[in-house]
Design a protein around this nucleic acid. Structure first.
Length: 949
DNA sequence: GCACAGTCTT
DNA sequence: GACCAGAGACTGTGCT
């Protein structure tokens, strides 16, 4: 078997690490993108772990990297990272490379690529399989897909040269020259080659065809007319430099000696150091084994030189890890060991007292004791994650740090109810503030036993939400962050997530006691740790007046659920199935092939390679053809199957996401669907809904609308009532900007989009055409989200100049809004945050970024967040008020759903006369807007959601 | 199990 | 030449 040599370009690693280490929180819908977070180290580890190279080297070219970025100001401006950013990443990279004990090579005056190129061929001739690890052809690809591996000498000595949009696989000098020339000319073509900004691949090819070479083009630059000529003249230096950069040199003065590149054993202590410092928990365990624990080894901030030795640190770390192992071996109780980042903060150094209360006497004494308290931390253990379908396994209470009580609840539900009865005076006490992490869950569980907490709520999850709206806030994470302590994981009790996960019911009481009591204990300590933050960040108002009181409202709504007409959906499913089949057959017949129509990848190949519907077909960032709705709509005139594809897409989407899934989520006990509201997810302050998501039930198309007919009232004594705010976000814009024209429009009650059109086109409201109103509407929404002329033009299908004119007019007419946008951005720049009327804040750390794209994103958020967030505050306040009023009036009607600006109720028909004004008045008065801008709401009712809306 | 493309809402 | 409105949840495909 041939020996394997891996050559890595540090340049690629630095970019990768920059993203991994400096900008690491790349948030996706599922939380932090761990791929980005650990990508660099993962790549290194995977290479060694899976490929098992015998030899390896990293080619370091740090100076080159930062130089290149400072040389080209333009180029730099379009990048997300700065030389400083990269420099910041380099020490970490060095330490990780050092930890893995990978040889490093660098030759002054040459690019890492060239060193790699030279070594690769030498090693290849010496009989090695050489793998070059280097960035892919474009920067975006690098960030997303990791490091591209290509292999010279893999197929009879072929080498791959990355060119723009194609790969040259033969060592074909002529072809290489062409590629190199194109790269030299083409702006931003390849990761580290700037080219001439403003020149694309096609222009580059055209120029080369005309003049033959870059040198000829530059010599004749003065003869090239127009802006193209100017670009070429301005880019002379860049083009020559880029051409040089693009060619991989294979005669660098460096020699391949195999003993120099032999992989040695890892320097584990050094790895532990750096992983600990970077909190690479999961990866640390993968690399170093299960015993690695970030929270058990204190970080040591000793800088190391790339080639320096790490003996001193190693000794230290070694001592630490040994100590840790001893501790782990002598004490099986996870509670009492582990040391965090700040040993002083760590609760495990303090003895704790977790007490089991499993007899009537003990419980009675506990309840008596708890009744003396004003703040009690409370947590439940249950048989499952779905509160609407879970049994109580136990409860824990804590009111003094390091002390907690656990009460087991038996599987016999009558016995459990009996235990709960003992707690009734406690749960009914109005002077107790209940502290908990996501109390909505616990309250929902209790509600199934007929119990409601009468006191106030203090939810630590919500406290963290208002203090730090972005990021995740699981208890494990908060505990690690605020208390420097890693609690027992639930997996240690019931196993890893998945279908084999066990049940809390089957875990021995002693174990649950430790786990559950610790949860209550930690949550209480979290409350103390988080509490000062509320004042510091000035978010107490939104916390105490909005988020905490809302918990009870949401609990009741989730408990109620909504009735679904299962039979209707079943019939509709069949109908959709039939029509989708038909459309699918049409597509196959029209295309002449059968394929998986649900696969965008296969569809793209059929449309653009077989049928060649669009020679200029756009591709997605991963290189497959884009086949989104917008793309297909533009193609619909070219081939009749496109319309069928769109129909197929619509039907299958409706069928799989709604019609077929909703019935599966009907609760067996209630026969209703109970959505779950996430109160601490959306950064702007909105709620989100899942399991199922009832906030995205279709309404736009006729076929989609049908689904709303499946949402029905409880019985024939009830109707569904839907009430929604009218133009709430625009009213808020008017209110907080105080723009006189817009405020006036709302006060006089005329249609806001018509009023806007009249102003923008400078005509009377009565002369506004449908089209003008439509455009004005689009501008109204676009403007407040910071959409530019291009976006508006694209949206409306009009020319850019027309779009620009409309926007300019708009800004002139609604000068207050322009001022609001400028003021908001300036406020954010100065203070680092923006806020809603209720003081809900959003921090924008990128608002002063030197990078255009990053800053732009922050600026749009600065404008949008106060608007969307104020709307969220308003409806939340309305919900709290309506909930209280309904309780006061002892109404039997129930609030069921919230869809951002809409509330849905199950209304008892005879209560309608009371209910309707109650809803409307509370919605309108929930949060008065500045400048006297009126808030309007409408209410409708019917035998299903479609009729009510 | 994860990333991605696509599609639904406000 | 690329990007280009905010905020989410969920599905199927394709890869590891």
């Amino acid at each position: 078997m041939a020996k394997k040599l891996f050559l890595l370009d540090a340049y690629a690693l630095i970019f990768r690490a920059y993203y991994a280490l400096i900008r690491n929180p790349r948030i996706t819908s599922k939380g932090i993108n761990t791929n980005a977070q650990f990508g660099f180290t993962n790549t290194l580890f995977d290479l060694m772990n899976k490929e098992k190279p015998s030899h390896m080297a990293v080619c370091f070219d740090v100076e080159g990297v930062t130089e290149r970025h400072t040389d080209f100001a333009d180029y730099k401006a379009n990048r997300q990272e700065t030389p400083e950013d990269l420099s910041a990443a380099i020490p970490f990279i060095k330490r990780i490379i050092e930890g893995f004990n990978i040889p490093v090579i660098g030759v002054t005056g040459y690019e890492a690529d060239d060193v790699i190129g030279t070594l690769a061929w030498q090693a290849h001739d010496a009989g090695y399989d050489v793998y070059m690890v280097t960035p892919d052809k474009d920067y975006g690809q690098l960030v997303r897909d990791g490091i591209f591996i290509y292999k010279p000498g893999y197929q009879g000595g072929d080498v791959e040269i990355m060119g723009p949009k194609e790969v040259c696989t033969k060592w074909d000098i002529e072809r290489v020259d062409q590629v190199v020339d194109i790269l030299g000319l083409m702006g931003d073509a390849v990761d580290n080659i700037p080219g001439i900004p403003g020149i694309g691949e096609k222009t580059a090819a055209k120029l080369l065809k005309e003049y033959g070479s870059i040198e000829n083009i530059l010599a004749n630059a003065d003869n090239i007319k127009g802006s193209l000529g100017e670009k070429v003249r301005n880019g002379k230096e860049s083009a020559i430099m880029s051409k040089k950069l693009a060619r991989i040199i294979t005669n660098v003065p460096v020699e391949f000696h195999e003993e120099q590149f032999c992989l040695k054993e890892w320097n584990k202590p050094a790895l532990i150091e750096v992983f600990t410092e970077l909190e690479f928990k999961t990866l640390g365990k993968r690399v170093l084994g299960e015993e690695f624990n970030v929270f058990q080894t204190a970080p040591v901030g000793v800088q190391t030189d790339l080639f320096g030795n790490v003996v001193e640190q190693s000794e230290k770390s070694k001592a630490k890890s040994e100590k840790k192992e001893v501790a782990a071996n002598t004490d099986g109780n996870a509670d009492v060991e582990a040391t965090g980042f700040g040993a002083d903060k760590n609760i495990n150094n303090t003895a704790h007292n977790y007490i089991l209360a499993d007899t009537q006497e003990k419980i009675a004494a506990l309840v008596k004791d708890l009744l003396q308290q004003t703040e009690i931390c409370f947590d439940t253990e249950t048989t499952g994650i779905d509160a609407n379908d879970a049994e109580l396994v136990g409860m824990s209470f804590s009111y003094i740090p390091h002390e907690a009580y656990y009460i087991p609840c038996p599987a016999d539900q009558t016995a459990t109810k009996k235990i709960l009865e003992q707690f009734t005076p406690l749960f009914n006490s109005e002077k107790i503030t209940w502290i908990g992490q996501n109390l909505k869950y616990d309250m929902l569980v209790l509600k199934w036993y007929g119990i409601e907490l009468k006191g106030n709520i203090y939810d630590t999850m919500l406290a963290h939400y208002v203090i730090e709206p972005e990021g995740r806030r699981s208890m494990d994470l908060l505990s690690a962050q605020y208390l420097g302590y890693e609690p027992v994981h639930i997996e240690e009790l019931i196993g890893k997530k998945g279908k084999n996960q066990g049940n809390m019911r089957d875990v021995e009481v002693e174990k649950i006691k430790d786990y559950a009591a610790e949860d209550a204990d930690i949550t209480l300590q979290l409350k103390h740790a988080l509490h000062p933050g509320l004042k510091e960040k000035e978010v107490e108002k939104v916390f105490y007046e909005v988020e905490n009181p809302l918990v009870k409202v949401l609990t009741d709504m989730e408990f109620e659920g909504i009735k679904i007409d299962e039979g209707f959906l079943k019939d509709y499913s069949k109908e959709l199935e039939r029509e989708a089949r038909l459309a699918e057959e049409n597509v196959y017949a029209g295309a002449g092939v059968k394929f998986n129509l649900s696969s965008p990848k296969q569809l793209g190949e059929v449309l653009f390679e077989k049928l060649k519907l669009d020679p200029k077909a756009k591709k997605t960032k991963t290189g497959q053809y884009a086949t989104g709705e917008d793309v297909l709509l533009k193609l619909s005139h070219t081939n009749p199957i496109v319309a069928d594809i769109l129909v197929y897409r619509e039907l299958t989407k409706l069928k799989s996401t709604y019609v077929d899934s909703l019935p599966l989520l009907i609760n067996k006990k209630t026969g209703r669907v109970h959505t779950s509201y996430a109160q601490a997810v959306a950064v702007t302050g909105r709620l989100s809904s899942n399991n199922p998501n009832l906030q995205n039930i279709p309404i736009r198309t006729d076929r989609g609308k049908e689904i709303r007919k499946a949402f029905i009232p409880r019985d024939d004594k009830h109707v569904l009532v839907s009430s929604d705010y009218s133009q709430i976000e625009l009213r808020i814009v008017a209110g907080i900007s105080g723009d006189p024209n817009m405020c006036e429009a709302f006060k006089s009650g005329i249609d806001i989009h018509t009023a806007t059109a009249a102003k923008v086109y400078n005509i009377e409201a009565k002369d506004v055409t449908k089209e003008m109103r439509y455009k004005a509407k689009s501008v109204n929404f676009g403007i407040i989200y910071g959409q530019g002329a291009f976006g508006l033009a694209d949206n409306l299908g009009i020319s850019r100049s027309e779009a620009k004119e409309i926007i300019d007019n708009y800004k002139k007419e609604f000068i207050g809004i322009t001022k609001y946008m400028d003021d908001t951005i300036n406020f954010a720049r100065e203070h680092g945050y923006v806020q809603t009327l209720m003081g809900r804040k959003r921090w924008l750390r990128d608002i002063n970024s030197s990078n255009f794209t990053v800053r732009g994103f922050a600026e749009r958020n600065a404008i949008n967040s106060p608007i969307q967030g104020t709307a969220a505050d308003m409806i939340k306040l309305a919900m709290i008020k309506i909930h209280a009023a309904m309780k006061k009036e002892k109404l039997q009607s129930k609030m069921l759903l919230q869809v951002h600006d809409e509330l849905v109720f199950d209304a008892l028909k005879e209560e309608m006369d009371t209910l309707k004004p109650l809803i409307l008045e509370n919605m309108k008065a929930a949060l008065p807007l500045p400048h006297g801008v009126p808030v309007e709401a409408e209410v409708g009712f019917g035998d299903n959601w479609l009729e009510a809306h």
